[in-house]
Nucleic acid binder design. Structure first.
Length: 570
RNA sequence: CGGGCCGUGGCGCAGCUUGGUAGCGCGCUUGACUGGGGGUCAAGAGGUCGCGGGUUCAAAUCCCGCCGGCCCGACCA
């Protein structure tokens, strides 16, 4: 490619509506343009990078025996009804009607369709299988953000494993785990594998691959001592034990005018610090009122409740619903003597006494509350959000809470979809058995953005050779000078012959413009062909990553560069 | 969905308070000089001021409605 003929619209200024580094740089360097909220057009450079990401993923999937498919994006309602997800996916699924009035949807994931195809498997002897595809997913995100990091239309590599039993699934899961590790390594960034919640996918275990980054939106808790790591939605920790002074013989009501929050109550006469308060949260779970109790200074992780109530509808109760249930407004709610609602308490409240909590009478609280004596807790669960520096649940070393980008997610699904779609095979005893499935996803464009988040500097992107749109740029300093241009062209052609992805910057621009663009676009190697060097028979090779520069005899340049590039391709 | 900010040539912005000629920088075109980190000079092209309505002699500017984008929150794979 000649730069003079290429569509690489670089910008001098950051786009005004971009915040994330990858968003700014991918726009500025001419890799993509926005079409609407959460929808981007990939330009030639962006397309080249995504193709390379795709090829790396493809190689690693093939390596574990994956077979590539190409499934439709347009799905009939019926197949989603069978899994119950037509309505479960809610507004996030693009649903509409065709000209005959039939309900259809744009695929946001493909468990249903692959499970439907798996119905074509007959015998356990045909298992295991790993099926995958690269396909556009449509998800009507409530809030797209950060350029390619959270979008409404994107390409996903989704794969699905099919096994006769859970041991088989474990094996397929492990194979994917290793494949994903290799993929992210080849993409040029380090990930942390964390325990995660399975969300709407169902199943009993999932692992997310996270890249630490300020641009991320997921929080994880990680232990540097033993390697424990979990999404904050799932993480647990150990905390300092607390000692309660002996309380009262019975809870005692006291007035707390104007007190609405934990903080208010800390400052009130007869109040107590947050760790001595019981916070009462009222939730609606499947139309029933449930009370969630936490220590006053702890935060609820709603997902932990969701994970315990398979499939149920869960939301905070409104102030009116709380009043109906308990007789007071939020701010004075409590669980003491409440018998007709289900009460779930956080583990951190076990055995606590002499606590303060709402009295279920507006503007009154209770003190001297002993949780075992005064509250009918029906279930003890871990509900609280882990905080930075709390103890690791495995080894007690301090946990670090960090912001991350989710670059991959793998799930053990089990038989949810195979049962819904009737995907069974005959086992060794001639009996029909549902296939045990796993599903595994990587978003291509998000991973491209993740590479940028992990590899950039003040001048622009610093692509690893593996995914660089071009591996080498031959910068012709003075294309109007015949010798200069000819040496550049010959070098360019020699590199092409070596199989290197090379672009010839033959534009009639000032050298500085070409240098700035090469840095911004992030091409790993730049070779400068100019009159100064040619007077000594040399060209200058500069490595983008660390700025290392050296002069090379013109005749040796192509082989030297090819060797360097090939050495870094992995 | 709630809160905040913002829509003016391709990009980044000013003008709006106090209504009256659309302006700046970059980029783009042509020419000249230049040529190793976004060069200089000269001459140009390019804008329904997001959309609709209203007020007014007159609206980028004031009022109403809508649409779109970004950020925070809620939600989410």
């Amino acid at each position: 490619m000649r730069w003079s003929k290429a569509f690489i619209p670089t910008l001098r200024d950051d786009p005004a509506d971009a915040e994330a580094v990858s968003h700014k740089l991918l726009i500025r360097a001419g890799f993509m343009r926005q079409l609407m909220a959460g929808v981007y057009s990939l330009l030639p450079l962006g397309t080249r990078v995504v193709r390379k990401v795709e090829q790396i993923v493809r190689e690693e999937m093939n390596r574990i025996g994956g077979q590539e498919f190409q499934l439709p994006s347009l799905h009939p309602r019926e197949i989603w009804e069978r899994s119950g997800r037509w309505s479960a996916m809610g507004a996030e699924m693009f649903q509409f009607q065709d000209r005959r009035g039939a309900d259809v949807a744009l695929g946001m994931t493909h468990e249903e369709i692959f499970a439907h195809l798996a119905g074509g498997l007959r015998s356990y002897k045909e298992l295991p299988q790993i099926w995958y595809q690269f396909q556009t997913k449509f998800r009507d995100e409530a809030r797209p953000k950060s350029g390619l990091l959270r979008v409404r239309e994107f390409t996903m590599k989704d794969s699905y494993s099919m096994d006769i039993d859970w041991d088989g699934l474990d094996h397929a899961f492990d194979e994917h785990f290793d494949a994903y590790r290799r993929i992210f390594n080849r993409l040029g960034f380090e990930t942390v594998a964390v325990e995660a919640s399975s969300g709407s996918m169902g199943g009993n275990q999932s692992v997310e691959f996270m890249l630490r980054s300020d641009a991320g939106e997921d929080w994880i808790a990680a232990c540097s001592a033993c390697g424990y790591a979990a999404n904050i939605e799932k993480a647990t920790s150990t905390i300092e034990p607390v000692h309660d002074e002996p309380g009262l013989d019975a809870p005692e009501r006291f007035p707390t005018p104007g007190v609405r929050t934990i903080e208010d109550l800390e400052k009130t006469d007869g109040g107590a610090p947050g760790w001595r308060q019981i916070k009462t949260l009222v939730y609606r779970v499947d139309e029933k009122i449930v009370l969630l109790l936490l220590r006053g200074d702890h935060t609820l992780v709603e997902q932990k409740i969701v994970d315990h109530v398979e499939g149920g509808e869960i939301r905070p109760a409104t102030a009116d619903e709380a009043k109906d249930a308990l007789g007071a407004q939020p701010g004075s709610l409590g669980a003491v003597a409440v018998e007709d609602h289900f009460i779930i308490a956080d583990e951190a409240l076990r055995g606590r006494s002499n606590m303060v909590t709402g009295a279920n009478v507006d503007e009154f609280h209770l003190r001297g509350v002993d949780i075992d004596r005064d509250i009918s807790v029906k279930a003890w669960l871990d509900l609280r959000e882990v905080r930075d520096a709390e103890g690791c649940p495995m080894c007690a070393a301090p946990l670090a809470v960090q912001k991350t980008i989710e670059v991959g997610h793998i799930f053990k699904l089990g038989t949810k979809y195979s049962e819904a779609m009737g995907a069974t095979v005959l086992d060794g005893n001639g009996k029909a058995a549902p296939i045990v499935m796993g599903s595994y996803g990587i978003g291509l464009e998000r991973n491209m953005a993740a590479v940028v988040e992990a590899n950039h500097d003040a001048a622009g992107i610093v692509w690893p050779v593996n995914v660089a749109p071009y591996e080498v740029v031959v910068t012709v300093v003075k294309p109007k000078q015949v010798e200069c241009l000819e040496v550049g062209v010959r070098l360019y052609e020699a590199l092409l012959a070596e199989g290197i992805d090379v672009i010839l910057d033959d534009r009639d621009e000032r050298p500085g413009v070409k240098f700035k663009d090469a840095d911004l676009v992030g091409i790993p190697y730049r070779v400068v062909v100019g009159p100064k060097g040619l007077a000594d028979g040399v060209v200058e090779i500069k490595r983008r990553r660390d700025g290392e520069t050296r002069d090379i005899q013109v005749g040796h340049a192509a082989s030297t560069l090819a060797e360097a590039v090939l050495d870094e391709r992995r």
